[in-house]
Amino acid sequence: MAKHFQRELATIKRMILSLGALVEERVRMAIVAIENRDADMARQIIKLDYEIDEMEVEVEEQCLKVLALHQPVAVDLRFLVAVIKINNELERIGDEAVNIAHRISVLAKRKSLDLFFDYSGMAEKVQRMLKMSLDALVELDETLAFQVLAMDDEVDELKSSAYDRIKSAMSEKSDAIGYLINLLLISRHLERLADHATNIAEEVIYLIEGEIIRHGKYPIPDKLRR
C-alpha cells in the first residue's frame, strides 16, 4: 500500500514537471516572439495553449484521486497541496504566454516603429525565475526559492522603468498610442509571469518548511540576503 502510494506520488511529480517543461517551452516561445515580433510564433502559442489546459486538469485529477484514496499526512499532504497550487500557477503562466502572444500578433501587424524598446533583459530574468522556481521544486532547494523571491523585486523595478519610458514616449508620439499600449501590456504580462514564478517558489518553501510565507510576511534568512 505504502509502496503503491509512493509510486503515485512519483507519477504526480513527473506530471507536474512535465507540465513545467511545457510551460517553460511556451514562455521561451513567447520571449522569442517578443524579440522578433514573430506573428507565426504567437499564433503557435495561442493554438497550442489547450495542451497546457488539458495537462493542468490531468494533474489536478490525479492529485485529488491520491488525496481521496490515500489520505496522506504531513510532508506528503503538503506536497500534494503544493502541487495543486503550483499546477494552477503554471496554467496561469501559460495564459500569460498566450496574452503576450495576442499582444505580439497585434504589434506584428503594424509597421515597426523607429522607437525601439528592448524587453530582452526583463524577459531573460523572468525566464530564469521560472526555471529557478521549478529547479527549487525538483531539488527541494530552499535557497534557490528565496532567490526567486528576491528577483521578483528586480522585475518589478524593470516594469516600472518600462512604464515611465513608455509614458514619456506616448506624450511624444500620440499617433502610436495603440502600439505603445500593447508594448506596455507586454511588460505587465512579463511582470505577472514573474509573480506566478514567485508564487511557485513560495509554494516550494511551504512544501519544505511547512510555513506559509505569502503576502510579504516572510523573513528572508540572513544567509540569503544579498
Binding site: A10, K13, L17, V138
Partner: peptide, 20 residues
C-alpha cells in the same frame, strides 16, 4: 549541476519535453 539523486527521472534532470 547537482549530483544525481537516486531514482531521479529525466524530467528532474532537465525539463525538456522533447527529450522526455
Amino acid at each position: 549541476s547537482t549530483p544525481l539523486s537516486p531514482n531521479a527521472g529525466i524530467l528532474e534532470l532537465t525539463r525538456n519535453r522533447d527529450l522526455d
